[in-house]
Design a protein around this nucleic acid. Sequence first.
DNA 1: TCGATTTTGTTCTCACGTTCACAAACTCCT
DNA 2: AGGAGTTTGTGAACGTGAGAACAAAATCGA
Lengths: 248, 248
Amino acid sequence: MTPARSRRAGTHTRTERGIPEATVARLPVYLRALTALSDSGIATASSEDLATAAGVNSAKLRKDLSYLGSYGTRGVGYDVEYLRYQIAREIGVTQDWAVVIVGIGNLGHALANYSGFGTRGFRVVALLDADPQLVGEQVGDLVVRDFAELDEIASAENVAIGVITTPAGPAQDVCDRLVNAGVTSILNFAPVVLSVPDGVDIRKVDLSIELQILAYHEQRKSGEAAVAGLPELSELTDLPSVGGGVGA
Amino acid sequence: MTPARSRRAGTHTRTERGIPEATVARLPVYLRALTALSDSGIATASSEDLATAAGVNSAKLRKDLSYLGSYGTRGVGYDVEYLRYQIAREIGVTQDWAVVIVGIGNLGHALANYSGFGTRGFRVVALLDADPQLVGEQVGDLVVRDFAELDEIASAENVAIGVITTPAGPAQDVCDRLVNAGVTSILNFAPVVLSVPDGVDIRKVDLSIELQILAYHEQRKSGEAAVAGLPELSELTDLPSVGGGVGA
DNA sequence: TCGATTTTGTTCTCACGTTCACAAACTCCT
DNA sequence: AGGAGTTTGTGAACGTGAGAACAAAATCGA
């Protein structure tokens, strides 16, 4: 009896195709944990084992997995290989996704050399930059190509995912052109808020924001002593002189 | 953190010094938006303007700001400079935070050269690596130093924040040593779940996970046609043969 | 076969986060 | 001065997520 098929017999609105976003964000973590267990030669794991490996609590893990189906065995646990495949399939990494990276500066170089891509369902098909000085440079086993070639590359390789590693300035323009070329998922490393049409997913990775969040908590750990004695507002303490107009 | 705190006060508990985590994560975005407005010479902005610039809706922005205090003027809006300072102070970026980067590979190089550090309250005081071949290399205006020097650097420079850009393997060990050296906030780029003692904050940036989240949504956009016809489970369709033991 | 044991899948409850909607507070114009 | 127009700050409703707890389902031993 393959448990993978019949999902229709739910008791209460199984929400056939609706996995909570918070759960989706954790599935890759579970996938990684399962891969690690598999590499260690472990064939079966309980929700407790998995949860520990993934850094969550077991109740949450079980609930997350229950959205995918009933892949465990009560009294036993989860078969590592089987569950790994199911999660990989649900996420979509059993197929290969073509990825382009735009902006081959320091970060673009680093990502281009990142080995984690190929091994997990993603294939970098092009490195693009608008700077003629960079075009032609060999990075890893790819050559940097001109950003103007985006359209042909995108349609030839069926590129769905684009990574933006340009500075903030050109990011929105790059984004627009990616969308125009048919890219419908964007991972943005540039420190700007990009706007995209409906149907395009965007995720943001921002070093500066992460550090500031840490700083906030760090400041509170440093005790309120320092915080209490920081009144050096200079001219800013004055009430705002309302005057200037507001741009759109 | 401290699990037993008196949370059972009033109906809604003002929580004098407790800004919701979701709000904290957005404050840096507002800060950036305000800086952009300021650079454009705009002196006053409404919640609507700010919300647009930050990519959120205005009600959320107003509620977020209300946790900091009452810094706006009804009928007018917010004074850009004034609010910018208040948010910067609340986050803690009016002071300088010393940062060490551990693991000077591709990504470490990229971060070391990232200009966004200095401009926003963070100062990279050391680049560390355990590889003797890297030690001594000049990166930006710093020289890579031996990871063994961590303790003296940390105490000399009062380092509170560490960035881990090593491979997955050594990451936990590096993390332990950072904590041991007095670092209480860690930004982890290595693809592993790090465990830290109470009182240490950790945030994770994971390219692979972000891509997988995008892939999940991409797969669903591609229509269920492709999904319906993917039954190539090979040997995995067999019921799991329960047998192997489970490691801790 | 039957009971003891293990572990999943799910229900229930509470906390957190988002959005709506509106009174309060301010400016501007007559 | 007073009314019209703006925009903030916040109370209330709603939705999502987390965790505790437990019934259901499986294995194992006698």
